[in-house]
Nucleic acid binder design. Structure first.
Length: 848
RNA sequence: GCCGAAGUGGCGGAACCGGCAGACGCGGCGGUCUUAAACACCGCUGAGGGCGACCUCGUCCGGGUUCGAAUCCCGGCUUCGGCACCA
């Protein structure tokens, strides 16, 4: 085909087609959904909303456009699909921009949102824009405050003084926001310190056990494992030691420890308290006081210093006091050391150096006694000096040096010791969790104000519901010191106590923005509702979310908080379901071409606007799906994008110009050798329907890369028939129709254009392809009469034979053994065995 | 160190259940069309050997199970992600 010929039909011009169809879909209301419609099954499709940083990069497309394809596919399958978007609009970058450029965070944020809305529209996705949520608007954050007050009433929110992780730039951090061995801030990278502050907490620990239960959820295994590890449930015992009488001490103070190994109680040769433990002060002997105080001060500072290695030497000092072991009355010295954490268990341990690596290291360093109390059963009587801690809980291990518990197996020992401790009131079975309560206070301006007032008379007073929202003052002074401007804003700060009317002071901390994202999908259902946070009827009808898509980096933050919130809201009677997201898919992450995370500072950000201008949204959508498995991600490389664009061009040509013949092949326009028109049409139908069968499964299973590959294969096959006598025949027409329908969810613009050009050519009125039903496979079309069977000799392919589908095994064997190549491979030997692999293959086994 | 995921052509990847390794695309080579180039189209393209039909080798490494292993089992190596003294 020459250039002149090729211009005979219109060329594929995505930049002309795409905006036109996007406008048309808006007119047709394709992006609207009647949430109260009856009849069709609901499908709540949710993709993680974005922080309005200002620009979309290709990573946003990577999450959202395949998700949109799923929505379109579901819609074609008769579902009422709800697919909202919004913006996670509070947060630090806006404040940073304010300090740096003197722009108000609200101005900066809303401007960014405007730009991002435009960019999001260019994806051609069917987002429900009228459900949009912007979390920095009072109509949203008002309900953060309202929910906070309900949690406060229910005892799920509380204020406590606690050592908190503190970043000099960003203030308080949640534990999840402290990263790495050196404990740096996830945002700015500065070393994180510990500070004692009065802070607000949400009682997520109350739900620890329920959060470990993923029953009924279709979530990726790695995320479930990560959450389970984060929650970190350990079963063991709480054992009560007592302080021994001493010159400076009457004795009898209860010192509780948590242990997972009550069977090793006889091996406790000393005890260690966290430096922050409340009893340290009381137990320390006058002689040790200076050393102890120095150590505590040092430990405090130590968390501020970069600690690059976890296997640094253990440090600690003795208090100069002893404790009494409840099982044998033995006196053991009490130490403090920073390897015992104040926030876990009881903040105190019994040290069993023989059977715990950390205690072993500590004992070795300070020459404390090590007493073996567990031995592998078969090594009894071979006791010697231990070179390392023996940490084992094997069934065959037995207790030694443990008085009346000697020679009991470990499980039996645990049960017996626990029972005896319980009888004496000296201990009980206990469970401990790694997860701590969620610290939600942030010393920042750009967040939801925490709705409480401090009154000298009444203490902590909640802001009455009627006074909500507590609005962020707009006219504030950003000094750039990092200190929240709310702290110095008299108009905000000074407020009458709602209870006594006296002078009160408003809370100046704002909420962690993860609160916003912990319930936003409920709000999507009624974003402007003024009578409450959620419309209960809609929530009951539409939640849980059927499919959630987003990055795995939220495994222990957003995805855990959301589950907690949903459970808490269910207990408060605000929602009915206890889990937010029924099915979760974590797509991978697109990295920069350098293999690093995309970021402006690295200069490796891919701008989708340019790509869209050059290739069109359909090509970009399809290319992102084609790159590889969706959960894999990978470095961005535009190599190959041309191949996908070519594919769309071929679809264009197939649909509009079936009779044309390209130059190139000598036999162009001829049917394949040995094929008549009937056979050709059967081949086309079979290919189209087989493709439909696979592609349907691939949409269901989110295997978009192979889905695109199979559509390419079908297009390649049709291209071979282009210009032949069957081009544009009945089978061809059907194949084109199926090809367009199958491609429609992934490449929505070009398919609607081609669909309607073909309708117009047939004298039919316009009708969007996206209103069509997903086609059904015709079983008759895919039924084959013959099939090709590979033949192996000793597992190696030697030949193939085409046989009728229903052939008898004996007949097949006779046929196979008569083949020249097989006779040659057998070289006169007699087969020992012939394996028929379910009709898929024949393997002739011959020995010698 | 612990937990998790993954290692297949020059590259992205396919093979979903143990049954034709490398689908599809990129890149490369050759060709058709064109005055020419670009575009488009057609063919070839894992490595080695052979004029050829074909043969040998080949899915991180070493063992094993099986008629048959990229796939299952045991041991090891490497890369990526998470956790960071959690008693």
């Amino acid at each position: 085909m020459t250039t002149a010929d090729r211009t005979r039909i219109d060329r594929y011009e995505p930049t002309e087609i795409e905006p036109r169809w996007q406008a048309r879909w808006a007119e047709l209301g394709l992006d609207r959904v009647d949430l109260r419609a009856q009849g069709r099954p609901k499908y709540y499709l949710l993709t993680m909303y974005d922080y309005p940083s200002g620009d979309l990069h290709i990573g946003h497309w990577y999450v959202k456009t395949p998700t949109d394809a799923v929505g379109r596919y579901r819609r074609m399958n008769g579902f009422n699909v709800f697919f909202p978007v919004g913006f996670d609009a509070f947060g630090l970058p806006a404040e940073g921009a304010a300090i740096k450029n003197g722009i108000h965070p609200a101005t900066w944020t809303m401007k960014n949102i405007d730009n991002m809305r435009r960019q999001l529209r260019s994806m051609g996705a069917t987002f429900q824009w009228d459900a949009e949520v912007v979390t920095c608007l009072p109509e949203y954050y008002r309900w953060n405050q309202w929910l906070f007050l309900r949690l406060l009433e229910a005892g799920l929110a509380y204020r406590a003084k606690a050592p908190v992780d503190w970043c000099p730039n960003d203030g308080t951090l949640a534990r999840e926001q402290v990263e790495g061995t050196d404990r740096h801030c996830w945002r700015c990278g500065a070393p994180v310190e510990k500070r004692d502050l009065e802070q607000w907490f949400f009682r997520i620990t109350k739900y620890a056990d329920e959060l470990l239960d993923f029953g009924g959820l279709d979530w990726p295994e790695p995320i479930r494992v990560q959450q389970a590890n984060w929650i970190g449930r350990s079963e063991g015992a709480e054992v009560v030691f007592t302080s021994a009488p001493d010159a400076h001490l009457a004795g009898g103070d209860e010192i509780r420890v948590f242990t997972t190994r009550p069977d090793t109680l006889f091996g406790a040769t000393f005890m260690v308290l966290a430096p922050e433990h409340p009893l340290v002060e009381r137990l320390t002997s006058p002689g040790q006081r200076p050393v102890v105080e120095t150590y505590i001060a040092q430990a405090r500072r130590q968390t501020e210093i970069e600690r690059l290695s976890t296997d640094r030497d253990k440090t600690g000092v003795p208090l100069g006091a002893d404790a009494i072991n409840p099982v044998n009355g033995e006196r053991i010295p009490i130490w403090i050391a920073d390897y015992v954490l104040s926030g876990y268990g009881t903040g105190a341990i019994m040290a069993v150096p023989a059977h715990d690596e950390r205690d072993f290291a500590f004992a070795t360093q300070f020459r404390l006694p090590i007493r073996e109390v567990i031995r592998a059963g078969e090594t009894i009587g071979q006791e010697g000096e231990l070179e390392a801690a023996y940490v084992s809980k094997a069934e065959t291990d037995v207790l030694v040096n443990s008085g009346r518990y000697n020679l009991m197996s470990v499980p039996a020992g645990i049960r017996a010791i626990l029972a005896d401790l319980e009888t004496d009131g000296r201990g009980k079975a206990a469970v401990s969790y790694r997860v701590r309560d969620w610290l939600i206070s942030r010393q920042r301006y750009w967040g939801t104000p925490i709705p409480v007032i401090y009154c000298p008379t009444d203490g902590i007073v909640p802001v009455p519901d009627a006074d909500l929202p507590v609005r962020l003052p707009e006219d504030v002074d950003f000094k750039g010191s990092g200190e929240s401007p709310l702290k110095t804003d008299r108009a905000f700060l000074d407020v009458a106590c709602p209870r006594c009317g006296g002078p009160g002071r408003r809370e100046t901390d704002t909420m962690d923005t993860f609160i916003d994202s912990s319930w936003y999908w409920f709000r999507y259902l009624s974003p402007h509702l003024e009578s409450g946070p959620v419309d209960r009827a809609l929530v009951d009808g539409w939640t849980p979310v059927d499919q959630y898509t987003g990055g795995a980096e939220h495994a222990v933050m957003h995805l855990l908080y959301s589950r907690f919130f949903t459970k808490a809201l269910a207990d408060l009677g605000i929602v009915g379901e206890r889990e937010p997201f029924k099915r979760l898919f974590n797509q991978g992450q697109i990295l920069g071409a350098d293999g690093e995370r995309m970021s402006k500072s690295r200069g490796n950000v891919q701008d989708p606007d340019k790509l869209v201008a050059r290739y069109g949204a359909d090509t970009i959508r399809l290319f992102l799906m084609f790159m590889g498995p969706w959960d894999q991600g990978g470095p961005w490389s535009p190599t190959g994008i041309g191949g996908v664009h070519r594919f769309l061009n071929r679809v264009w040509t197939l649909a509009l110009d079936p009779k044309g013949i390209e130059g190139g092949a000598h036999d162009a326009g001829q049917l394949p050798a040995g094929e008549d028109a009937d056979a050709a049409e059967r081949a086309i139908r079979m290919a189209a329907h087989r493709t439909l069968r696979t592609v349907t499964e691939e949409y269901e299973g989110f295997r978009f890369n192979t889905m695109v590959a199979h559509l390419m294969e079908l297009a390649n096959l049709l291209f071979r028939y282009r210009g032949t006598q069957v081009a544009d025949g009945v089978a061809w027409q059907e194949a084109i129709r199926l090809l367009l329908l199958m491609l429609a969810p992934a490449a929505p613009h070009i398919t609607d254009e081609l669909w309607n050009r073909r309708r117009a050519a047939a004298g039919l009125a316009e009708s969007s392809i996206h209103a069509e039903a997903w086609p059904a496979v015709d079983p008759a079309a895919i039924a084959a009469e013959t099939r090709e069977v590979p033949i192996q000799v000793n597992g190696k392919i030697r030949d193939r034979v085409t046989v009728p589908v229903g052939i008898e095994q004996a007949e097949l064997e006779r046929l196979v053994l008569a083949r020249d190549k097989i006779r040659a491979a057998l070289a006169g030997r007699t087969p020992d065995r012939i394996v028929h692999a379910g009709g898929r293959l024949v393997n002739i086994v011959v020995r010698s």
